[in-house]
Amino acid sequence: MTNEHIVGKFDDELSRIKSEILEMGDLVIEQIHLSTNAMMSLDTEDIDNLIQKDLKINGMYKTINRHAEQIIAMRQPVAIDLRMALLATSIASELERLGDYAKTTAQGVKKLSDDKYVKKLTSLLGDMSKEVQDMLSKILKAYQNNDIKLAAKIRKRDRIIDASFKKILNTVIKSTSKIPEDSETLIYIVLLARNFERAGDRIVNISRQVHQIVTGIDLKASD
């Protein structure tokens, strides 16, 4: 899409920040994957490890911010270069929050039970999570390749996530009257569903940021 810089080291710094985002993104996907597995299998063995790993994600976020700051201070980037540095910090911030959702999912496992009803709901959450993981992995591809067409496709998929959230919410509303003694679990399930729904929104944000890096255009909320 763009030519190389006369100063080769500038290219190195911009590609470093890109690899850091991609690495951070892969780790977030892994975290979502593992915490969802724990939720579905009610396996609490890995949870401390998952919570620990979130600290690593937070650290990566700080590193990316620091490297972006250095590029801006020392290279005075303009136009697309400035957007690459500036929006890297926005994307990293979305990824950091996605990491938090994975952590919350892991922390919630202890509150779940193997009740038939709960199982049915967590399996719906599992579907949501799969969709989120796939969207996230594709949006990282779009970011890697400056692919605004792929980014636009991902934005459309947010509807699927929203629909799943509504379905879980409706199911829970119906079941509260049936199993009132388990209301804490149900509230937790709604919270997790809400997190996955928010995860979809954050991926949409990343998709818009990819569009802005490439085109310079800040999309309206409707696009």
Binding site: T2, N3, H5, I6, V7, F10, V78, A79, G216
Partner: peptide, 19 residues
């Protein structure tokens, strides 16, 4: 010009790229 130039030649110049 310095945030989103229209012509690729302008972009290459202001961002210090090989034109």
């Amino acid at each position: 010009i310095f945030t989103n130039p229209t012509d690729i030649k302008t972009q290459n110049y202001i961002t210090g790229r090989i034109g």
